[in-house]
């Protein structure tokens, strides 16, 4: 098994057709089904939704000093909005989940393999 991050990206300032209340509820319901399916098949590891990119803060080292600056880190128009960490047999399986998620929320999903994954280290 391998682990993948399915990340949801939003484009800053992009005006999308706002979802109607009904569409929003349908989207939520679809996501609920997909997430339960992920859990049932043992694919689900972790998921999170993030605040807007401009709530990010960057910590970096300059010389001996640790500096804090306002984020986001990347000077980009596209920002991570949330992610799923899933376990899948291979990329095709991961892409299958991504296809389901993007169909439900109508936002592009990036699928990226995890090089390592650590649970809490033993004391």
């Amino acid at each position: 098994m391998a682990r993948y991050m399915l990340s949801v990206h939003s484009r800053e300032g992009e005006v999308r057709e706002p979802l109607t209340e009904e569409e929003m509820q349908r989207s939520h319901a679809q996501l609920g089904v997909i997430e339960r399916e992920m859990a049932a098949e043992g694919a689900w590891v972790f998921s999170a939704r993030l605040h807007e990119a401009d709530t990010a803060t960057v910590v970096h080292v300059s010389g001996d000093e640790v500096l804090t600056t306002d984020g986001p880190f990347a000077e980009s128009k596209d920002h991570l909005g949330g992610f799923y960490l899933i376990e899948a047999a291979d990329l095709d399986a991961a892409l299958g989940w991504a296809a389901k998620v993007t169909a439900a929320i109508r936002v592009p999903i990036e699928v990226r393999p995890l090089a390592g994954f650590a649970d809490a280290p033993h004391a």
Binding site: H51, E52, D54, T55, A56, T57, D70
Partner: peptide, 10 residues
């Protein structure tokens, strides 16, 4: 507004 939102969210 964005500044206050960041203070709250972060």
């Amino acid at each position: 507004v964005r500044t206050k939102r960041k203070i709250k969210a972060a």
